[in-house]
Design a protein around this nucleic acid. Structure first.
Lengths: 334, 334
DNA sequence: ATTATCTGTGAAAGCACTTCCATGAAAGTA
DNA sequence: TACTTTCATGGAAGTGCTTTCACAGATAAT
């Protein structure tokens, strides 16, 4: 089968006996074209099966019609969920969706330094990646509209949650259930390209416990590299103590599931022997009945896109910080 | 902060006292440029912080430097896993990754009919979406290199698995474990934009059972719309029978998890009272210890990209069908 | 010394649109 | 009738790069 040369605006113009300017107008502002001319042009478009190259349009009107998303998608499952919100919010717009996956800080910096200059994007969503001020300056200097998720900055729009309050909610619920021996299993170190939410969630948790006169002793505090199995190992050791905690909060569902597995392996009844609360409410949490602090992941993506599109429509719009609510989702583990 | 006009190849050329052609050559084929000229140009590039607009390069060399992926990402979790393979395979190439999420057949057809014509892509990966022959013809007519996953077609390269064998493997394992009352809980109807793997997996399952002299009676066969909860409901009813099955195979992990929940709700011991096998081995399966027929999701994405890039390097390359192996992953549910 | 070959470079075409500006025709107003 | 305004349309610039072609100068072969 031979290759077909797709028709251009020139072909349509010739076929309809008008100039390319008129064809362009029929496409972009049909009300400015005489009804009869318009009909003629539309017939030609249909006959030649003409679809304007988005590339060329974008170039001529100096917009790329593209939104990029920068995130460590495959390191933490929650980012895929946010991406879903982004995709939904974008699905009825003209914008295409580009994925820039981050797996090292070098790659993050490469993208951040090149994307604004190469002008391939109209807007950028950066998820949970802390980055140097000079990149923020550069983004602004080159006029690349940017919204961050989880990383507030006064000169950029952001979608955030209050991690400390999340920790407080977990503590509050444990206290309400009558627990006095409350533990925490979280992150010791975070990849250098990601942010440290675990610490903030721990801080809120610890403070709310303290306010209720409950201490969080060192033997109830387990920190390990992020991941299900590391959390499981920590939990196994923590449960082996003479007076193990009766409740454990983890700053991610992944880790909470690790704790849950440890409990099951030791024959502990959940939530009778030990209550477990996670954080995020990723899809799996519902599958396995995990009680968790839900953050609206889907919605964070959607809101980020809304902020971005609003900014794109009005470049003068001031940056805006949107804080999304957390909710305790009670399922079977606490 | 005022907007910065990023420097172009013209600025560099002027700064280095050469023509833009020479700057372009320094960028693309430095060995064809005199050493001293090259040094001069490279100094200018550095000084002006010049980064070529990928857009313009792509246009001039008539390639978009972009790979698109078409899939119902958020309908089935397995597609995100495949996407991961795609992203990994692409991460060291020059290509950018575009996501086209499908949620209706109308959208699928819109993308399929426009993408080849608008020339925004060099290559396309289509995941598990059946589509009309005329779209295949069009893809080829307009020269958009395409690889499909799960949808073999003699004129396109594809990555596939053998669904029937997957069903046979599940049956074989149940037989080996001594089960005689084997059930199946799968899909009654599939979104009109997706393919019907459930039926093929059932066919293989049924045949392997038959070969062992085991019947699959109607009361052991449950079909419902795809989803965890629909599967759970079916399972609840199936377990309520006088002689319920002692083993259930589901053609997706999501459904198997629904079955598992039903079993737990009824106080059935898994795998003692009932054994459960899923299909796919999505991430959750490991979390909850689900025994499943694993298909290499990650790898399917990677192989698809490899096929695509090979095709892009050599347009004459004949289509190729790669079949990926299935493996039984024994965990705790069977 | 003369011709052939090679090397390095610049000029210019091509890409496929949008949009500003100019122009002519038609309609409206004094 | 003469002038102004509105409408419809075409011409042409602008976009930032790659690549082909041609040419000048240097080197090698005869």
């Amino acid at each position: 089968m031979s290759l077909v040369r797709s028709s251009t605006i020139y072909d349509v113009a010739e076929h309809a006996q008008v100039s390319i300017a008129t064809v362009s107008r029929v496409l972009n502002s049909p009300e400015h074209v005489n009804v009869r001319t318009r009909a003629k042009v539309q017939a030609a478009i249909k006959e030649l099966n003409f679809v304007p190259r988005a590339e060329a349009s974008a170039r001529a009107r100096k917009s790329a019609c593209r939104i990029g998303v920068l995130a460590p998608f495959f390191t933490y499952p929650s980012f895929v969920q946010r991406l879903r919100g982004v995709a939904e919010a974008l699905s009825d717009s003209q914008y295409e969706l580009l994925i820039y996956n981050i797996d090292t800080s070098a790659r993050r910096d490469l993208y951040l330094s090149h994307l604004p200059i190469t002008r391939r994007l109209d807007g950028l969503v950066v998820m949970a990646l802390p980055f140097a001020t000079r990149y923020i300056d550069q983004l602004q200097a080159y006029g690349l509209a940017t919204v961050t998720i989880e990383v507030p900055d006064s000169s950029l729009s952001s979608v955030i949650i209050d991690d400390e309050i999340g920790g407080q909610m977990a503590a509050g619920y444990f206290i309400e259930l009558g627990h006095r021996r409350c533990g925490f299993i979280g992150d010791s170190e975070v990849p250098d390209y990601a942010i440290h939410t675990s610490d903030r969630r721990l801080a809120g948790y610890r403070r709310a416990l303290a306010d209720a006169g409950i201490d969080l002793p060192a033997q109830y505090l387990g920190l390990a590299p992020h991941g299900l199995d590391a959390a499981r190992q920590l939990a196994l050791r923590m449960f082996a103590q003479p007076h193990p905690p009766t409740a454990i909060f983890s700053p991610s569902d992944t880790q909470a599931i690790g704790v849950l597995r440890a409990a099951r392996e030791l024959g502990l009844q959940v939530p009778q022997d030990v209550a477990i609360i996670g954080f995020d409410d990723i899809e799996v949490a519902d599958f396995i009945g995990l009680t968790t602090i839900r953050q609206p992941l889907n919605e964070s993506g959607r809101v980020a896109v809304d902020l971005l599109l609003a900014r794109l429509r009005d470049r003068e719009r001031p940056p805006q910080i949107v804080q999304l609510p957390l909710t305790l989702v009670r399922r079977e583990t606490a």
